[in-house]
Each structure stands twice: as C-alpha cells, then as structure tokens.
Write a protein that binds this DNA or RNA. Structure first.
Lengths: 335, 335
DNA sequence: TTGAAAGCGCTAACAA
DNA sequence: TTGTTAGCGCTTTCAA
C-alpha cells in the first residue's frame, strides 16, 4: 500500500488535518511542525492521492481536452502548448480524441466530466448547427476550441477564420489569378467562415467566385489527401479549369496538387495552390506549399489563460478569443 | 450539484447499495427493482462520479500513457489505436507528454500514478541505462513502449528494432550500394538496436560500415530535420561521401535529403536514403522516401491486450512483445 | 496553532 | 434479494 496522510500523522503524533495543511502550504502551522511533517514526507516518499483530494476538495486540478484527431498536427501542437502552460500552473491536461465521431465525442465528454475535470476544452466534430447535448448541459465550465456552435454563446478560442479566407483570397488575386476555386468543407464553423472571408476578398478585387468553382466535401482531417485529390479531379474536368485553388487545409492541398501534377499541369505556372495549417512538412513537399498559419502554439497559451479564469470561477460572460492567421508564401503560388 | 446515487436511492426508498449494484450490473437484484432504478437514473440523467468510484473501489478504469512527443506521428497513431482498443473494453486512456524532458517525464509519471491509473504505459525519453526512479518503484503495473531499459526486466511492447536495421541494411546492399552510412542516435534503446541490426546485415553481405560513416546525434524527434541536415553535411564533407544513408527516422532523412540535394546530388542515382517510421507524408515529399514501417496501429492493439492482462493482475513474469517492421520502397532508393 | 467531527460519492463485506 | 456498517484518503468547518 501507498503511504497516506494518516501514516505521517500517526508517525508524528499529530492530526491528519495538520499534515493536510502542510501539504497544501497553509500558513497557520508552526515552522517546527511544518519541518517535521515535510521531513517525514520526504523520508516516506509520500505522494498525495489525487483522487481522494479531488473528491474531498471538489477540485481535481485537471483540465480535459477533447480533439477530433490526435494525429492532426494542429491539435497536437495546440495540446502541447496548452499542456505546457497548464503544467506551470500546477494543472494537468487530460487528453482525449473523438476520432471525428460524434458518438465517441459524446462519450469522451461524459467521461471527462465524470472524472471531475475543472474545465473542459472541446474541439467538436459536430456540425455547428448541432451542439453536443452533454456539453450544453454541463455544469463544469466549457471552452470551445477551433470550432464554435451557432446560436450557442459559449467561451471560445480559435483562429480568425474569416481572415484565413481573406489572406488566401487576396494572395491569389495579388499574383494575378482570376479563375479562382475553393475546395472546402461543411458542417463545422471554420469551413463557412473561411469561405466567407475568401469570397469577401475576391469580391473586393472584383473577381467572381463561380459556383462551379466551389467544391464542398467532407473528411478533411483523416483522409484529406484523398478528398483533395478527388475534388481537384472534378475541377479539372470543367471546360475551363481554375488557375488557382484555395484548399480548406494543407492535407487536401497536397492531394489536390497531386491531381494537378498528374494531369500534366505545372505549379504554380498553370495553377497555384494555397492551403491552411502550415504543416511541418509543407516546405519539404514536391512543391513546397503556400499556407495560412494558425499559430497553434499561441492559441494554446491563450486557451490556458482563459482556462485559469474559468477554473477560478472568474468566468463572467462567455468570451470569444480569436488569433490572427499569417500567410506563409512558398513555391506553390510564387515560383 | 450533480445527481448522486443517494438521490436515486432516496427517491425510490431503497438503499444506496442497491442502486450501486444496479449501476454495476450485479445480478442479485430483482428485475423489478432494477427497472425502477434504471428508469430513475435515466430520468435524472445520472452520471456516476468516477473519482468516488475509483477511490472506493480501488480501480479507476483508467490507463495512463506518457509519450515523449505528441506531435510525433508514431506516438499519435499508437495512442489512437491504443485508445480505441481500450475504449471497447470500458477503459479510458489518459495521455501525457514529456516533451523529451526527463524532468517533465518524471512529473507526469508521478501525476498519473497519483491519479490512480490502473496501468501505466511509458515511452521514456531517458537513456536506456538510466531508468526513471518513479517507474522503478511504482506499485502500479507498468508497460514500457518503444524503448526499454537495460538490465531492468519490465513488460515491454515495441518494434523489432534489430530487424529495422537489418531491413534497411539488406535493402541498401541489395540495390548495389557499398559506401553505406548511418545517421543515428544514442541513449534510448532503439538507436542501438537499429544500428546493430544494420551492421549485421552489412556484415552478412561483406560490406563494411566505416567508422567515419556512422554519425551519432541527439534530437531526432522535435527537430529531426535540422539534425539530419547537419549530420548529412558532415558526411558530404568526407573525401569519399557515401552512396547510401540509413537515417534513424524519417524526419532526419528528410533533412539529410535536403542537404544532399543542395549539394547537387541526385537521389537515388548518386545517393540513396532510407528512413524509419513511414510518415504519412513520405510519399508526397520532393523525393518520396523509402522507409521502414513500424505498424504503430498494430502495436497499439498489442499493447491494449497486455494492458488488459496487467490490469487484471494476470501479470506474472514481465513479457517482451515485439512487432516485425516492413520495408516500404519508394523513389529515394529505387528510381 | 492545532485538532475533532463530518463528509465528498461510492464500494466491499457481511448480515438480515 | 436487500440493507447495514465501515471505510477509500483527503478536505472543510469550526471549536479549542
């Protein structure tokens, strides 16, 4: 059996309360007693049982995060950054993945709540119009990440997706393209926001985003390369194929570029590509990919700050925090 | 406040024990009582408090996993597969990352133990010669992943790293290379095993692995591309540069290839490269990369099986499980 | 500055 | 088949 508070108290002839107070750094303990307790703790290599502490104290010092896909570099980097920031505040991050499955997501949310996390962060894979029921009812503070729900005011930290679209649109117009297409998604909020920003940028430049040039698909995370590949084939079969494509993310851009190259097109001379996410490998690709960077690292730090507030009950009104994306230009748009 | 067992018991005029038994599916309860309890649970949307359950029952139904780097695709895929297999057994996976820092690793291990995981899996970033103290002392069952410690018999699940090296060596010899080099690591067990297997394969073919052709470095996960890049520059500065290189992992192979291409060499005509890990993006690289695949997915399933045994106390003697790697040939070795 | 009492929500062991 | 008692290891509250 592990060493408990009681063991220490008994050894020293003090009460468990005294030991507990030392453990938590309370100040109403004499230096002499404190030293004796600390010494014994060291001797026995005492490790407090966090389950018991959480149950008795009502706070677990744990924060939960549910992401749609652990492999996805964006969430991996976000989680890393968040975990680091929380660790320095004495909080642990408990990670879970929904595998892009709303049922699993619901289950993971319930699990984390049942395990008493103080704050729950969720990047939901559900459509923006159909929030998770468990989340909506939760009494634990919730912070949405990357994707928000329509008509449901909740705390949110994410990228300014309108600007993602605008940066992409402006860049493609700026390099002289006019037959501009978009391979995008549906359901989650960033897809609509990015498209809207994209359209806005094109409109401002007097460029039309033809309906046939907008291809909507699903499955951009797990098998985004295949998704992009097939969507691109569709665009290539048009009478007048596009000379530039903004893809929802980098993975789909990779697939789309493959399709274009197979069709004998030169990138960027014949057709330019821009993605989003700024994958670690973007510069090592056959054609290095221009991408919109979401600064997932800073996003993690931002989320950590908000978590601290929420965990301290300083929630107040739901707050929306958005970070500005950055354009990273590579050879897929500029030779 | 959340609904508790007690609320249900009071509402129904039964004892909490009865409700608890229904909750856990015990059979010594009348169908009538069971139905009443279940009905009320549904009505109140009761969610058991897992903290309390774990504290009282001595089992948390949670399994911990500490990896050196979440971004690393190998660990991401392993975690995904493991989590899926555990979920179907009613266990949750709690993830933590050490960021390749032994101090953080030690802290995360202690945290997970303190939170009462039933089994702890660790892919340690410590040298094979210096096991984590917290791990060595743990009373919780531990399963090492991917990296093991010398002279410390513990349960282990990983790749057959000797064979990783052998596959790489045989392939390079097989395509006619003779000036063969290795960019490898030190410290963790797979580095030594892969090198040993590599040497064995070369020796079997009568090819010598010259000392100057073995470059040892650190930092293969986080910034492996830079590591590989610089190591390759060193190899290129030799009087007689190699005509083939086996890199410890894919990321370092990417960096090494960059250095070779910058030096004006053609891949694979002038110099061939082989990595390990079979990155998702390996085929989309400037030169698609030949790699040894570790089948992280099956490794996760294998680990899950062993976790179930350990968690049931069916540990018996420490067991070592190794999965056979597979060679995936691409253009970096065969045009 | 210390500690007694009560309890967090649940389960184990046994008794009725 | 059901319930009683006694905790799990810790914190909270309040009295001494």
């Amino acid at each position: 059996m592990a060493v408990t508070l009681k063991d220490i108290a008994r050894d020293l002839g003090v009460s468990t309360v005294t030991v507990s107070k030392v453990l938590r750094g309370q100040t109403d303990i004499s230096d002499k007693t404190r030293e004796r307790v600390l010494k014994r703790m060291r001797e026995l290599n005492y490790q407090p049982n966090m389950l018991a502490r959480a149950l008795a104290g009502g706070r677990s010092q744990a924060v939960g995060l549910v992401v749609p896909d652990l492999i996805h570099p964006f969430f991996g980097e976000f989680a890393r950054s968040l975990a680091g920031a929380l660790r320095s505040e004495g909080l642990v991050l408990v990670l879970a993945s929904s595998e892009e499955d709303p049922e699993i997501e619901e289950q993971e949310i319930k699990t984390l709540l049942a395990r008493g996390v103080d704050v729950l962060l969720v990047a939901s894979c559900r459509p923006a119009t159909h929030p998770s029921p468990a989340l909506a009812e939760a009494s634990t503070p919730v912070l949405l990440v990357d994707r928000h729900f329509l008509d449901l005011p909740m705390d949110f930290v994410g990228t300014n997706d309108l600007m993602v679209g605008e940066l992409a649109g402006r860049h493609l117009v700026g390099i002289g393209r006019r037959r501009i297409a978009h391979i995008g998604g549906r359901g989650i909020s960033p897809t609509a926001d990015r498209l809207q920003g994209f359209q806005r940028a094109l409109a401002a430049a007097g460029v039309d985003l033809a309906e046939a040039y907008v291809v909507m698909r699903d499955g951009f995370e797990e098998s985004g390369d295949a998704t992009g590949y097939h969507a691109m084939q569709e665009l290539l079969s048009l009478r007048e194929p596009p000379d530039a494509v903004f893809c929802y993310n980098d993975l789909s851009a990779i697939g789309a570029m493959e399709a274009a190259m197979q069709a004998g097109l030169r990138i960027p001379q014949d057709i330019a590509f821009i993605g989003c996410g700024n994958l670690r490998y973007a510069e090592y690709l056959r054609v290095p990919l221009t991408s919109v960077d979401q600064s997932s690292h800073r996003l993690g730090e931002l989320a950590a700050k908000r978590v601290l507030d929420l965990s301290a009950g300083a929630g107040a009104a739901p707050q929306t925090l958005r970070l500005e994306p950055r354009l990273i230009v590579r050879k897929s748009t500029v030779a």
